[in-house]
Design a protein around this nucleic acid. Structure first.
Lengths: 147, 147
DNA sequence: TCTAAAGGCTCTAGTCACTAGAGCATCAAG
DNA sequence: CTTGATGCTCTAGTGACTAGAGCCTTTAGA
């Protein structure tokens, strides 16, 4: 049995994130010691490692919740788990396609910049006039930033 | 002069999003008609088109704010605008690299699935055991989902 | 001219997956 | 026994919107 800090160190998941996972029901409420501090065992560690790995692969928490539910039932068909992974793969592929188009547009923009004044800047100009673009873009909602 | 609805239709930006941009100071507070409804002119339309296009290219609102500030000063050097675009390009490239690694991992996982039971499912197994992975992953925070 | 639907208004709260901070309690090492 | 690290709960903030409630104004047709 170990503390939340040890669990965090063992899995690479930050302490507040572990508490957050507990709060949203992704991790079971653990036992506490006499001083009300959380105590974890190896099963909890394995579950958290699973969550962390799935997050690294880009699975949203809802999908992870589903995968965890499935993994609790070793006898059932893995069809559903397979479908979730396929869906995730499709999304990753779609985002790669999308980002490649973005990269091309940004490269074009940056390479055309003659490093003069704002008035003649291609970066500003292209942003202001979509017609100067090589192709259409997707919805803004489909392009997201990282932390 | 046109209404917020016409502006939305003209730029492809949703009405609540326009009001949100006004709220956060990205768009100036427009004039109102006698019934307190917003009235926009072509300058506002051009500014919103700029914002929309930059969003499509993945620029965060803070960078867009900066670019808009720069574009208001046509005489200055475009060095800064160029730097912002380069930064954005670098981020897009980093994300592509990252997503390609994810795709490889997900493909490996999915292709190894024999469509049997959960107990023998490679998807569940690989997620639970990082050691089965072909390579390391980044922090979960570096992989984000789309809407 | 009347009416009804479409569009507009403000305000609050929700999304996702955390992260930060306040203010306090507990534990472990020296 | 002290002190610093670690733990606790709770609230609020992040980015870029989105949804909904409850109301008011405009516009097109009869």
């Amino acid at each position: 049995m170990f503390s939340i800090g040890k669990l965090a160190a063992a899995t690479g998941v930050k302490v507040p994130t572990i508490r957050y996972y507990e709060q949203i029901g992704l991790l079971a409420t653990p036992d506490r010691n006499s001083g009300n501090q959380r105590l974890y065992d190896d099963a909890a560690r394995a579950r958290l490692a699973f969550i962390r790995h799935a997050r690294e692969l880009g699975f949203p928490l809802d999908a992870i919740r589903e995968l965890l539910g499935l993994s609790d039932d070793p006898a059932r068909s893995c069809e559903q788990a397979d479908a979730i992974a396929q869906r995730q793969l499709a999304q990753v592929e779609a985002r790669i396609t999308r980002l490649n188009a973005l990269r091309a547009e940004l490269e074009r923009m940056v390479h055309q910049c003659a490093h003069g004044t704002i008035a003649e800047c291609r970066v500003i100009e292209v942003l202001g006039n979509h017609a100067l673009c090589a192709h259409e873009h997707a919805e803004p909602s489909l392009v997201q930033e990282e932390a």
